[in-house]
């Protein structure tokens, strides 16, 4: 079993075009749980995710991002972006294996890795499309392949940047349930602008608003995930989250 650590963000500051996106922002993400970061567009959710992923560099004096087990984060993070980022020239299977090729700079991958990739494709229900090109897949299927690619990376920490925002409601609900199931035991940090998505999958939900952005509200619903978003207590929580989002946004506008 994976030993997934928590993530500790301490006094993170990020300056963009002369303005602070974050100023001394601190946040603790619990280990082996799915944390959702909710916020309006442009608040800096994706930037925060990219800082953790190491895509955006964190300069000295701009805060610290550490794993709670003390080991470095580098090499222990898998990333799933808003778009599927599948390579159109490679087959579905080759897309899943991409990380292995990129790390070792090899055209051929071992039989074990191929088997593992097939297993993850089976998990997302696309084993029969392993040899197809991504262009022949629907948007939902493409996101499933991206999920299989993330699983193949087999990292204790998974960062997800609004991965299903382009999908219709039914596909979204299906994929949320599948993602929660297959990522169990990992520390997941899921960025979304959809309160219902956060309530469906998040074991800890943080609301990021304002400029510079801060965590203005957080909640840890008790029910196990994926939750049924039609339940009355979830609907009540959704109202609270929307209120938290609107309050800050309205305050910023005033």
């Amino acid at each position: 079993m994976l030993n997934a650590p928590g993530i500790d963000l301490k006094r993170i500051s990020l300056l963009y075009a002369g303005q602070f996106i974050f100023e001394e922002l601190s946040l603790q993400l619990p280990a082996a749980k799915c944390s959702c970061l909710l916020g309006p567009s442009g608040v800096g959710k994706s930037s925060l995710l990219q800082l953790i992923a190491g895509i955006l560099p964190l300069a000295a004096g701009e805060g610290e991002i550490t794993a709670t087990d003390g080991a470095p984060l580098l090499g222990r993070v898998a990333y799933m972006a808003q778009t599927d980022l599948l390579m159109p020239w490679a087959s579905v299977l080759d897309n899943v294996i991409l990380g292995e090729k990129l790390r070792h700079c090899r055209w051929r991958v071992s039989k074990d890795n191929k088997e593992r990739a097939r297993y993850h494709l089976q998990q997302v229900g696309l084993l029969d499309r392993a040899n197809d090109k991504p262009d022949s897949l629907s948007q939902g299927m493409r996101q499933r392949v991206a999920l299989a690619r993330t699983l193949f990376e087999d990292k204790p920490i998974v960062l997800m940047d609004e991965p299903f925002s382009a999908l219709d409601v039914v596909r979204k609900l299906e994929l949320q349930a599948l993602t929660v199931e297959v990522l169990q035991g990992r520390t997941v940090f899921w960025v979304t602008h959809d309160p219902l998505e956060a309530l469906r999958v998040g074991q800890a939900i943080f609301v990021l608003t304002g400029q510079p952005a801060r965590i203005h509200y957080q909640v840890e619903p008790k029910e196990s995930v994926p939750r049924d978003v039609r339940q009355s207590n979830i609907i009540a929580l959704e109202a609270e989250l929307i209120a938290a989002l609107c309050q800050r946004t309205a305050g910023d506008l005033a």
Binding site: A53, G54, I55, V77, Y79, L102, R103, H104, L159
Partner: peptide
């Protein structure tokens, strides 16, 4: 960016 998170080699 995705390649970066995968610890990719520059040549790869």
């Amino acid at each position: 960016d995705l390649a970066k998170t995968m610890n990719a080699k520059k040549t790869a």
